[in-house]
Amino acid sequence: MRCTRVALYDITTGTFDEVVSEAKSGMVPLFKDSNGFVSYGVAQIEKDAFVSISTWETREQADAAAAKAADWVKANSRNRFTLRDNYVGDLAIDTGHREPAPTAM
């Protein structure tokens, strides 16, 4: 079953646009090169807060992504943002996942 990781971050210095730029150059390649990667997104939810949402093929891969993300944030955030909460859960509904269409014979 696919799994989603949702992480809530607080911006401590700088802007959301700066965080997005850092995520594009750092977190995106890190996740894309990870086993089980399906998708990743970042959304501003408050003036000084954002959420990171990633989807993985398994819970183990989502948990591994949480550890990779924590290491990346510690090494690269330059104290611009900090993790407030992290959640990992099985997807009950995944409308973004499309099964291949049957082949006509």
Rank of each mutant, 00 (worst) to 15 (best):
P29A: 10
V88D: 01
D48L: 08
Q44E: 11
T55H: 05
Y40V: 06
V28G: 01
T4Q: 14
A62C: 05
V19P: 02
D71T: 13
I11D: 04
K47A: 14
L91W: 00
G89Q: 07
K24E: 15
D90I: 05
F37H: 10
I45R: 03
Y40L: 11
P100T: 05
A49G: 11
T103N: 08
V73F: 00
G89W: 03
R5P: 00
T103G: 08
F37V: 05
R98P: 00
E57S: 08
E60I: 12
A23P: 03
Y40D: 04
W56L: 06
D85C: 05
E60M: 11
A65W: 02
F81H: 15
E18C: 05
E57A: 09
G41Q: 11
S77P: 07
V20S: 06
T12P: 00
K47I: 08
D90W: 00
Y87P: 00
V73M: 07
P29S: 08
N76W: 06
F50N: 03
E18D: 14
D94A: 11
M105N: 09
G41M: 09
M1H: 10
E99P: 00
Q61V: 07
A92Q: 14
Y40C: 02
V51I: 14
V28W: 03
C3N: 09
A65V: 09
S52H: 05
K24N: 15
N76G: 06
G96D: 10
R78E: 11
A66C: 11
T13Q: 10
D17Q: 12
A75I: 04
A70V: 09
S52C: 04
V28A: 10
P29K: 12
Q61P: 03
K24S: 13
E22L: 14
R5A: 04
P100Q: 09
V73R: 14
T58N: 04
A64L: 10
N86W: 01
A104K: 14
R84E: 10
T103Y: 06
L91T: 03
D63P: 00
N79F: 05
A43F: 15
T55R: 11
I53H: 01
Y9D: 03
S21K: 07
R80F: 02
A65Q: 04
Y40S: 02
S39I: 01
V19L: 05
D48S: 14
D90N: 05
G96E: 09
T82E: 15
E18Y: 03
I53D: 00
R78T: 04
D17L: 10
G41T: 09
A66I: 01
V38P: 01
F31L: 09
S77M: 13
P100K: 12
E46F: 03
Q44D: 04
A67W: 04
I93F: 12
M27I: 13
A70I: 07
T95E: 10
T4K: 10
G14Y: 05
E60F: 06
V38A: 06
L83N: 09
V20L: 10
Y87N: 05
R2V: 02
A62Q: 01
T95S: 10
I11T: 07
A43C: 14
R84I: 12
A101G: 06
S25Q: 15
A43W: 13
A104R: 13
